[in-house]
Structures are given as structure tokens and as C-alpha cells.
Nucleic acid binder design. Structure first.
Lengths: 235, 235
DNA sequence: GCAAAAGTGTTGATGGTACACCCATGG
DNA sequence: CCATGGGTGTACCATCAACACTTTTGC
């Protein structure tokens, strides 16, 4: 608590839940804490809000750039929820505003100035070893994953996990991995090509990997899906 | 600014967007500010978070009880979003965690200890006179209404606007008013009675208001709607 | 040709809309 | 009886899951 004079009585933090798909699994970006409390444990990247003129959305974007080297306009970033249980940080009262980011699988570390040991951890693994996570971050991760899962249903966000050009198979695998559910490739194809503005054909074709080469697409202008693509597990 | 010594450099507020249906309109609970800034303007009820051991959800519930006299377990209360633009409060940096509450139309003031002038204001009126609202509260109200609108689609939340017992007509009017859209009474009836756990019949019937008396229902155990009841305006 | 993946056509089930029709009450 | 709102039946249409089938590549 020697640093408590530097931080207001109720401190405000901004934490990031950054998701990607890697090796057929949903992964989350975690850092290893170097200091107490929870030294050595895995935690969401984040930091305290400075009291200057920085907007909280901008603070989240800045943290994201520091961790990944990516600008917020290159990927999806949205506010998830604010967590403020009284003793979630044993040092003092901390209220943390959490953000959800989705990005394609890019190499890490991405040359950010902040060279803390950020690593991709499969979400399943992180959530099955809750004791290794700092603070209430297991709960935050679970909320982030659930938000991502449900957003795939009625928005075009799945494309945020893909690179700039992708095949319909790539997109289907995003859905299958995030939902842990297999989808019929033929019906999926029809469904996504039927939504206006979801996908823009590039005209090119992907290198074949054993069969007929797939058409390549970019993400289209649509942001919501009409009709939605619904999960099975719902009822 | 005489009280600024009591508030940390970055202050945390909890604000409430309390919605109800009154006189066939969606209404929001607003207070008239007595002090600068924005003295005399309408604002969302709320207050600063104390740095003691109060959870932020509990702080929202306490504010709600002070304004309406109702306990949080009697009505729906959920976190909406956190707003933290740098100059949203001209005095100092304030980050506000906003909550959305839905309640049936009950008389106000509800005998809370805090006798500030809380009043119901039709949402349309509030949003068409944005200049009369304090801070960024017009934006918050718009977000709250949009959240309520979309939650009616896939949750059973519409019952939160009704009293403990209600008719299917009452429920339909909730949808019609919140969505500003008229629905076919016959198809609506079939739809809601077809969702398992949405409605529990009481066995009683309402006093007639000109026609056959309607069956009375309580809210059932279901919290999500399968299938959803979708708005028209979507595509 | 054969395997493998992409993409199309078809069919039967399901859920939605529109609307005709019957039910129960007050006046 | 009539007016009024509550509630059911039904016909038609859109969407969807399931799966047979065709297309396009590598080997």
C-alpha cells in the first residue's frame, strides 16, 4: 500500500478481454502479473485510468495498442461491462471498466512498447484453471466469451476473427469454434451469402487444400444479420 | 466546487434510467437538478459512489430504493453501460456507471427518504428536448430505451412493466408502446401462450372492459424467449 | 479416375402473417 | 340483440434442416 497516495480512494481501471482464434481454439490474451497481489498469476491486460483528458474508450484503445500493436480501428473493440465488487482488489477499492476486443490470429508480441509477457491462452484452459487467474478475471472472461457467442448470432462480428480476405469455410470455422458446435457447410454457405452486405466477393479464389478452390470474400458493409444465425443450444 | 475535497480526482457516479409505462407512453424517471452545473435541468437520478464496502450493483439498488421506495428484488435492474467522456461533467472528471430499471406504473413519489422532485417524463418528450437534459443524459436515455426495446425481443422482460397479475392485452400494449408498433392481438396471443414458462395462468379473469373478460396471468419462470418475438423495423 | 472440398437443388417440417370465425360479457 | 374485446382455426408464405447431387481442383 506504499503507493496508495498516488491513486485516488476509488481507482478506475480499464481491462481488456482480447479474443482470437488460434489452432482451432478460442484464445484469450493474458499477461503474467509481476507484482503483488496475484504475482505470477495470469490476468487480463489493462491499467489504471489516468485522470487527464483521456476518454475511457480511448484508454481501452491505447491499452490495446500497447499490448498488440494494433490500432482500434483495425479491429473490433466494445465496452463489455464494469466490475466493482468491494474487495475484488485486496489493496484498495478498484472499479474496472472492461472491454471486449476481437481480432484475427496475428503473431505476438506485436512490438508494442510495453513488453510484458502477453500470451494467448485457450479459453477452455483458462476457465478450467480459475485459481490461476488474478482477481475476478475468470468471471470477466466468461462474460466476454458469452458476449462474443451471442453477438455472432445477430451481427456480422465473426468477420472480426478473420483476416482481410477469407473463405466461407474460414467463417464457418469461426462459428463452429466459438459456439463449440458443428454446422452444415452447405446450409451455412447459403445462409451467409444470402445476407445482404455481409460478404463482398473479391473475385479471387483461395489456394486449394484438397478440393475445389473456395471463393474469397472481404467483410461487407452490413453490421447486423437479418435474419440472425441462431445457435442450437438456445432452447 | 466547495465539496471537491470529498470526491477523489476521478469520481465514480451511479445513475439510473428507470422506465415505466404510463398513460400509453414510455416514461423515464427524472429529477430536477437543484445545484450547478445544469441547475434547473432534468437529469437521471443518481449519486456518487461511496468508497466504503458497497458493491456498485448494491449502490444502484440503494439509489433506486431512495427514489422509488422499491427494493431491487421487486423489479428488474441491470447494468446498462459506463460513460466516461472527459468533460461530461464540467467540474471534474466523473465516470458514471448507468443502470437500467423497468417497473410497473406505480404512484410517485413513493415515500423515499430522499424527497427530491422525481417525476415521470415521456421518453419522446425528453429526447425531443435534449437541451433541457443535464450532462450527456440524452444519450444515456437513448441507449436505455434501445436496450429495453431489444430485450423485449428475446427475453421475458416485458412482464417487468406489468403488475403482478396482468392480461395478455396488457402485455401486448407493453410491446406496442415500447416498440411504437401495433401487433395483431390474435397472433400475439398465440405466440406468448406458446412460449413455455413465459406466463402462468392464475385461473382468474379480469373485470371486463367492454368484451369478453380476459384471463389473468402471472410471470412464469422463463427468462428468455424461444422463439423470440421480433420487431418489424429490423431489416 | 478418385478423393476432397465447394457450391446448388429439392423436399418436408416448422414458424409466421393475415384473417375468418367463435366466445363471453355489458348494455 | 348488438357492440366489444378475448380467443381459436386455418390457409398461405417464408425460412430452415437434411441430404442428394453437381462442380472444380490435386494427385
Amino acid at each position: 500500500m506504499t503507493e496508495s497516495w498516488r491513486i485516488p480512494t476509488v481507482a478506475i481501471a480499464v481491462d481488456l478481454a482480447v479474443l482470437t482464434i488460434r489452432a482451432d481454439q478460442l484464445n484469450i490474451l493474458l499477461v503474467t502479473r509481476g507484482v503483488e497481489p496475484y504475482a505470477g498469476r495470469l490476468a487480463l491486460p489493462g491499467g489504471f485510468l489516468s485522470s487527464d483528458d483521456e476518454d475511457i474508450d480511448a484508454a481501452a484503445a491505447r491499452e490495446l495498442a500497447e499490448e498488440t500493436g494494433l490500432s482500434a480501428k483495425d479491429l473490433h473493440l466494445e465496452q463489455l461491462r464494469t466490475y466493482g465488487a468491494p474487495r475484488r482488489d485486496p489493496r484498495q477499492r478498484v472499479v474496472t471498466i472492461c472491454y471486449l476486443a476481437l481480432m484475427p490470429d496475428l503473431p505476438l508480441p506485436l512490438g508494442g512498447g510495453d513488453a510484458r509477457a502477453a500470451q494467448w491462452v485457450p479459453v477452455d484452459k483458462a476457465l478450467s484453471r480459475k485459481r490461476q487467474l488474478a482477481f475476478d478475471h475468470a468471471k470477466i472472461i466468461a462474460d466476454a466469451v458469452e458476449r462474443a457467442r451471442s453477438k455472432l448470432e445477430y451481427t456480422t462480428l465473426a468477420t472480426a476473427f478473420c483476416g482481410p480476405v477469407f473463405t466461407i469455410s474460414d467463417l464457418r470455422q469461426v462459428y463452429e469454434i466459438v459456439w463449440s458446435e458443428s454446422l452444415d457447410p452447405r446450409n451455412f454457405h447459403r445462409k451467409v451469402t444470402g445476407v445482404d452486405g455481409f460478404l463482398t466477393p473479391t473475385g479471387d479464389r483461395a489456394a486449394t487444400n484438397g478440393g475445389r478452390p473456395a471463393a474469397l470474400y472481404r467483410r461487407g458493409p452490413a453490421r447486423t444479420l437479418h435474419p440472425p444465425i441462431l445457435r442450437d443450444g438456445n432452447p
